[in-house]
Nucleic acid binder design. Structure first.
Lengths: 189, 189
DNA sequence: CTGAAACGTTGACATTTGTCAACACGAAAC
DNA sequence: GTTTCGTGTTGACAAATGTCAACGTTTCAG
């Protein structure tokens, strides 16, 4: 599990920092089952997670308690509620596993410490933030103007694996359409 | 014009950095009319802008060349296409003035120089990035599941000044609904 | 293995929203 | 001042999508 993170860091920085083992030991390992909630709306987000294996769903509830999924994170990616993590304000989103997942978690103190002792770690954080931002912008621009069918085609083109890996219900909530519409439109392809 | 930026930086950092005049002189002043394009999709984004006065629209074209507005930036805020600015990849968005505007622009070299000579400037950049990210996340979570009427109510609650300041056409494109729907629903409030 | 619960599909129907067209109005250009 | 163009409103209609209900299938706990 730790090796996946090691490899990820090496890929990001181009080479391994001298004290990579110190970096890795700052993370704690979590083995989670399906459907475990790791962050609840209103709580303070205490960790940034690296997904070594499995899959996470980042979502909110609307006023009728329907879920809307803002993001789906698969292995070798980072997941957190960065705004809450950074500001220590209550989180506006929920996070849960949608598959059994292995996570590596780092808390604020650990994060702070790495920022100071490992100069390049600051760069990793910036990269995570920039990637998250780029992802959000892309999602807004792609989705605000697309029809339901176009959103499905978009998903098949850019994240095809999700189509077979996840439940229809989850995908529909990620695309912002009803389960029934998703089911019907899939037939028309 | 420069004083607005000076004040903004002081507000952000809590106090003025020693060499604030050096910081301010790194920016170039731009006085623009209405409807001037300062970034075109496909070009590399060369500047980060501080809006001293006026208003900018960040938007994309869909395949029928309709505009969708991702963001509207008013005075005392920062505007750029940060992904393109940071990576020097082609921009995916357009930016134009929607009012006569005074801007303070800083290019990559200036930015890089400030990052090195003014330690706190790094913090400002992080703040801009984090604010932009928070804004995007908020927009996704708010809009993906809202109806047209709910989006209008949202705008009236959270950015009420925009309602009177901007054209209906622009607001509709920001809310992701047609001009006609916007016109009709306004009546039902 | 079995029963309950969740999921996926389909039909019928209501609702929302978009599109096209017409027209009044005001702002900008000449 | 006149003309022209863009904007905002409204009507009629079409298209897209949601909701509710029914039913078969799968999943999972016991």
């Amino acid at each position: 599990m730790v090796n996946k993170l090691r490899q990820h860091i090496i890929d990001r920085l181009g080479s391994a920092p001298d004290n990579i083992d110190e970096v890795l030991s700052t993370f704690q390992m979590l083995k989670l089952k399906r459907n475990e909630v790791i962050l609840t709306q209103g709580d303070i987000c205490k960790y940034v997670y690296f997904v070594a294996s499995g899959c996470l769903q980042v979502f909110v509830y609307d006023k009728e308690m329907n879920e809307t999924t803002r993001d789906i994170i698969t292995e070798n990616n980072w997941c957190s509620e960065l705004i809450s993590f950074g500001s220590q304000q209550p989180a506006t989103e929920n996070i849960r596993t949608v598959e059994p997942s292995d996570l590596l978690a780092i808390d604020r103190q650990g994060f702070q410490r790495l920022m100071e002792t490992v100069p390049q770690f600051d760069k990793v954080y910036k990269q995570i933030l920039e990637a998250s931002y780029a992802n959000s912008v892309y999602r807004i621009n792609t989705f605000v103007s697309l029809t339901a069918l176009e959103r499905i085609k978009w998903l098949m083109e850019y994240r095809p694996k999700l189509m077979s890996r996840l439940s229809s219900k989850l995908i529909a909530s990620y695309l912002g359409i009803s389960q029934e519409t998703f089911s019907r439109l899939k037939g028309k392809l």
